[in-house]
Design a protein around this nucleic acid. Structure first.
Lengths: 337, 337
DNA sequence: CTTGACAACTGGACCGGTTAAGGTAGTTTT
DNA sequence: AAAACTACCTTAACCGGTCCAGTTGTCAAG
């Protein structure tokens, strides 16, 4: 049997309320003398406040959830989780992982039964979740997601990231710059739309309209098609939708004896896998720690003032992306003599 | 105000206990007729059981923690988290992430205040945690860790994994096989001891005593030393402590124009980063999903029967490692003419 | 001497469920 | 027909805190 405030109260000779006040440092509710005695007794008896009882009484769990719908793959790809945990810990909150398999009706109860005070939602958004959280007025923040709905959201400036990417390659002397997105990413991420459009826009802005090349199809097919083009006609640089697509393309091209850093330049987005490639890939970083910090900030704010949900003061936050130049982007090879 | 069983009780005209029995499907406690009425009312009123109240009453949270002590790095490296979540979900449990910064006294209270029913501990073990969980009799499972203490643990058969690795390379014709472990891994992982010893033992068993080569030092230094050796004297294959070390070594060797798959063979352990390398790395996989499954099994068992802690029926589980041959290991290059 | 203010503490209600024990029919046993 | 049993429902206690509304005692002002 664990020690409760009642036990401490009996030992010190006060009521349990006095113990509660003392332990919670309530000013002006308990004298310094009694407080000292109570704290000493608590220490001595190895008292540990019962978290279940406290969260029941206070109607608050100090836990927030992370809703994600890729049980086996998602978490390994992202670095946001440890950052969320870190920033939450600063505010005495913790992170509960909530797998979202199937329609929201199957697991949505976990969001409204009190086990979490609010939640983050990451890509991809489970079907019906936006409606669900609005209907039940659940404090929610969309992490790295855009939505028309009135749900707080934090995401990155993909268009500007692409601008930096194209600018970087143009600065190296590239003109034949292609964009690649694997079918998988294409279907799943709508960031692709933003990046693709920005790519086209930037190329046009640079007067390279006729060089716009969108590589499509399965990685192996794309690489084969790429390799079959004559050397002086094919792109000298490829911007991939993300690091993962870049790395897959690198491997596929390698099978055709096309090496990154020798035969062509390649870059990705995210900075999650690019550092470990050989050569290390130039990439546009989406600082996950920044993302997490703002998500936590927004969510705890929403939890603290739920009434603000009707007229959210901060609905959308757009964060900067940052170019990281590594060794996979070099000036284009000069034409063979 | 949320709907409670009291509200349902009033509407149906029974006591709240009857509602509780009906909702919990207690046999022989409530008639089929009333149960139907109660369930209909609950459905109609949008009743959602209060998780805080229930866990308070039942003295059980149905949440387990994952203690980890690398706030920003650990989770990105491992794939065990999604697997733990998956297997826990099957048993109606959830995973809470518990960052363990500093000594156990700073955060250990989170383990004994009732927010979790038990916990997993992963590498590296926070100082004093083993003593702490034993002292407070907390259901605990060590994930991919070995310990002398009487704490349930699941880990892999590293010696056999190394046996498979050496056997694979020998089968390809290699005799000059080296072992590499970066200083970082060396200090942090004691799996290194097991693998290194097994490497030496296997080489001896194969009669290659005089070929035993342990590469040490920072990756760049190691690569430089490697490259400076004459081609017919240096190892033709390297087994790295893990995929991360292998990939770092690959990059460092690349700077000396030594390419994996062309100039030498390289393999790692873990199968966490090897698939994405170019060329894809041969590796010894430590199936994280299997690990997670057994960890969950053991922990829930311990939670269900805490009294078994004194004489644990299943204290240690050793799982098989599995060789995955990819394209980074080829027969040694034949001597140049 | 009375009154008011204030500090320090207590009584009681409450958060929303679970569980054991008790009661009341109706049915079966003897 | 009385006793025993069973099915079904209710009463009451409990989980361990928090918080509001008193109550008591002390001291200064009127």
């Amino acid at each position: 049997m664990a020690v409760t405030i009642q036990h401490i109260a009996e030992r010190v000779g006060v009521s349990k309320q006095a113990v509660s006040y003392a332990l919670n440092n309530r000013q002006g509710q308990v004298s310094e003398a009694t407080r000292t005695k109570i704290l000493a007794a608590a220490q001595d008896m190895g008292y540990q406040a019962n978290w279940r009882a406290r969260s029941f009484a206070k109607q608050r769990s100090n836990i927030v959830g992370l809703v994600y719908s890729r049980p086996r793959q998602y978490l390994e790809q992202t670095q946001i989780v440890p950052s969320l945990v870190h920033w939450l810990a600063e505010m005495d909150y913790e992170l509960l992982l909530i797998p979202a398999a199937g329609p929201v009706e199957n697991w949505g109860h976990k969001l409204r039964d009190g086990r979490v005070d609010g939640c983050f939602v990451s890509h991809p958004v489970p079907v019906g979740l936006d409606r669900f959280v609005l209907e039940h007025r659940l404090p929610t923040v969309l992490a790295n997601l855009r939505s028309e709905r009135s749900i707080p959201q934090v995401y990155f400036d993909d268009a500007d990231g692409m601008r930096q990417a194209v600018e970087h390659l143009r600065g190296l002397g590239h003109t034949r710059i292609a964009y690649y997105c694997s079918p998988k990413s294409e279907g799943e991420h709508y960031s692709n739309d933003v990046r693709r459009d920005a790519y086209v826009a930037e190329m046009k802005r640079a007067g390279l309209d006729n060089q716009v090349t969108q590589i499509v199809g399965q990685t192996d097919d794309a690489a084969a098609a790429f390799a079959s083009q004559p050397r002086d006609a094919r792109p000298t640089a490829v911007i991939a939708y993300n690091d993962s697509d870049a790395i897959m393309l690198q491997r596929a091209l390698w099978r055709h004896d096309l090496l990154i850093g020798r035969d062509l330049s390649l870059m990705g987005f995210n900075d999650d896998a690019s550092r470990d490639a050989t050569p290390p890939l130039t990439t546009v970083a989406l600082p996950q720690d920044e993302l997490a910090r703002h998500c936590v900030d927004l969510l705890l704010d929403r939890i603290a003032t739920p009434e603000a949900a009707d007229d959210p003061p901060r609905l959308r936050m757009v964060l900067d992306e940052k170019l990281i130049v590594r060794e996979s982007t070099l000036p284009p090879p000069v034409a063979a003599p």
